[in-house]
């Protein structure tokens, strides 16, 4: 287990290094950040002054060297546009994104798994077919459309929920959290539901497929014959054996939602990470993009690590090496 962890850590460092190189290379093609910061009629002297202030007067290689050097000392660089440390910009927006993502995956798991078990155990029923058609909608409807429709119905038409923003938030250990206030919850519902739909549909379909496979197994019939309740068999024996692919997909989806909740955040004017990424790309703000993507890579590596551990809990036959 320790060896496994160390191996994973080494892999992680390698992945992060690769991301930093790729982003640095890519950013040299996406335009000159100086022109995003200064007035366009600046003279050459003013442009040079701005380059010096931003540290862009050196060669690409030298800039990368400085970046890595600072990184090793825990300094992730400053945004060209904001002038603030890039890490600070990201961390101050992370809690908002985590809130809608966590709520979204909870909604997805709580709704998808029972429905998937039901549809998998009773494939012939009309209700199962209805569930499956519904999940197709969940996969195929684009998030921005669903978001706009929810705003139109729940905010503009029925005046039930606010259309956008984060509402009241309270501060806990320096983090702004909105799920501790009623107003915050009212703001959370629509974006979280929008964000959960795609994941919900995928989880549902995978759970169902796994359950259909598993219910045909002899040990299921045997357990029933021994007198275990139907419910006990489905969840205790069936779901447990169908869960491995569900957990895999769940982990990938979680990482995906944290990193790329952009569209949902834009539609609901949710003050999360996604908008920062888009704005930074538009403004060629390299320090922010580098740190953002490295953080995303880190999140994926960590989630995969956790998923591997969860495998061993679900199925004791699996060990990590």
């Amino acid at each position: 287990m320790l060896g496994y962890t160390i191996k994973r850590l080494l892999q992680m460092v390698l992945v992060l290094w690769a991301v930093s190189v790729i982003v640095f290379l890519m950013m040299s093609f996406t335009g000159d950040p100086v022109f995003m910061v200064i007035p366009i009629d600046s003279t050459q002297a003013e442009i040079d002054q701005a380059r010096r202030i931003l540290g862009l007067d050196r060669s690409m290689l030298a800039q990368y060297g400085i970046f890595i050097g600072n990184l090793l000392q825990g300094d992730f660089g400053r945004s060209y546009v904001f002038g603030q440390p890039a890490m600070e910009l990201i961390l101050e927006r992370l809690p908002a994104t985590m809130e809608i993502v966590v709520l979204a995956v909870v909604i997805a798991a709580v709704v998808a798994i029972p429905l998937g078990v039901y549809a998998g155990a009773n494939p012939g029923r009309a209700s199962s077919r209805a569930i499956m058609s519904g999940s197709l909608l969940g996969i195929s409807l684009p998030g921005f459309w669903v978001g706009m429709m929810l705003i139109f119905l729940f905010s503009v038409r029925w005046h039930l929920l606010p259309s956008s923003g984060r509402g009241d938030a309270v501060e806990v250990w320096g983090l702004r959290l909105s799920f501790l206030t009623v107003d915050g919850w009212r703001h959370l519902i629509l974006p979280s539901v929008t964000l959960s739909l795609g994941t919900l549909a995928i989880l549902l379909r995978i759970t169902r497929a796994g359950m259909m496979e598993v219910t045909r197994q002899d040990y299921m019939k045997f357990a029933r014959a021994k007198g275990v309740s139907r419910r006990g068999v489905l969840y205790g024996h069936g779901l447990r054996n169908a869960l491995i692919p569900v957990v895999t997909i769940f982990g990938l989806q979680l990482g995906d939602l944290i990193a790329f909740a952009t569209i949902t955040e834009t539609i609901f004017a949710w003050p999360g990470l996604g908008k920062l990424l888009i704005d930074s790309i538009y403004r060629a703000d390299r320090p922010v993009i580098v740190v953002y993507l490295m953080l995303v890579a880190l999140i994926f590596v960590v989630i995969n690590f956790i998923v591997d551990i969860v495998y061993t809990l679900i199925d004791p036959r699996i060990t990590v090496k």
Binding site: M148, I151, F152, S155, V156, H159, P162, S163, S164, G165, T266, I267, F268, A269, K275
Partner: peptide, 18 residues
């Protein structure tokens, strides 16, 4: 001041009185 990038959301927030 509230920053709302998506134009349709901005319109919605006006119409709802936000």
């Amino acid at each position: 001041f509230r920053p709302i990038t998506n134009p349709a959301t901005r319109t919605a927030a006006l119409l709802t009185g936000e």
